[in-house]
């Protein structure tokens, strides 16, 4: 199957599911309008969701994605307690700065998810991406080292392994 067709089918199913979840269906006309709007969305913006073929098996990718979600929520809870402690502390014990990390991911979607996860985890915020050298610029609220290898180990690696399984 061609990739664009596959992407359009996935978008159609998702749009229809969201419509059925948001409206209490009492009449067949509501369902018909939902199908029509989903078709419109599919033909306007359907081919942009999936752009490259994935090598892993779908079930394996799904399992890794579940693991990733749990790890992500754990990191997020830790991040929030850390920031809450910083904000309540009277002396504001911060030591901010912008550091660089390397990444091995190649696909655009994988780098996007990595950047979003880094933003929501302890003390870090993605500022920019250098696409040629595969480097991310991170604003870090408590800088402990400026060496690129150590920062990569401390910030990026906990997500990278799972994301490689899911998105590549």
């Amino acid at each position: 199957m061609e990739i664009k067709t596959k992407s359009r089918i996935i978008v159609f199913i998702f749009a229809l599911l969201v419509w059925f979840a948001l409206t209490d269906i009492k009449d067949y006309q509501e369902a018909l309008i939902g199908i029509g709007i989903s078709l419109l969305i599919t033909f306007l913006a359907g081919q942009f969701l999936v752009t490259t073929a994935k090598s892993q098996h779908p079930v394996k990718r799904f399992l890794h994605f579940i693991i990733y979600i749990f790890r992500f929520f754990w990191e997020m809870i830790k991040a929030n307690f850390e920031v809450a402690y910083l904000v309540i502390h009277p002396m504001l014990p911060i030591k901010p700065g912008i550091v660089k990390i390397k990444t091995k991911l190649t696909k655009d979607s994988a780098i996007t998810v990595l950047a979003n996860s880094i933003t929501l985890t302890p003390g870090t915020l993605t500022v920019d991406i250098n696409e040629d050298k595969k480097e991310l610029y991170i604003h870090w609220i408590k800088v402990s080292s400026t060496d690129i290898n150590e920062t990569t180990k401390e910030i990026g690696e906990k997500f990278e392994k799972t994301l490689t399984e899911v998105f590549e």
Partner: peptide
Amino acid sequence: FLGVLGLVRLPDVYNRLQAATKCVTF
């Protein structure tokens, strides 16, 4: 509430962005 407190207290725009985004999203 803590996130908004961080938005008011922290020194520059990047630190404010960190506290506000994380805490208010959570």
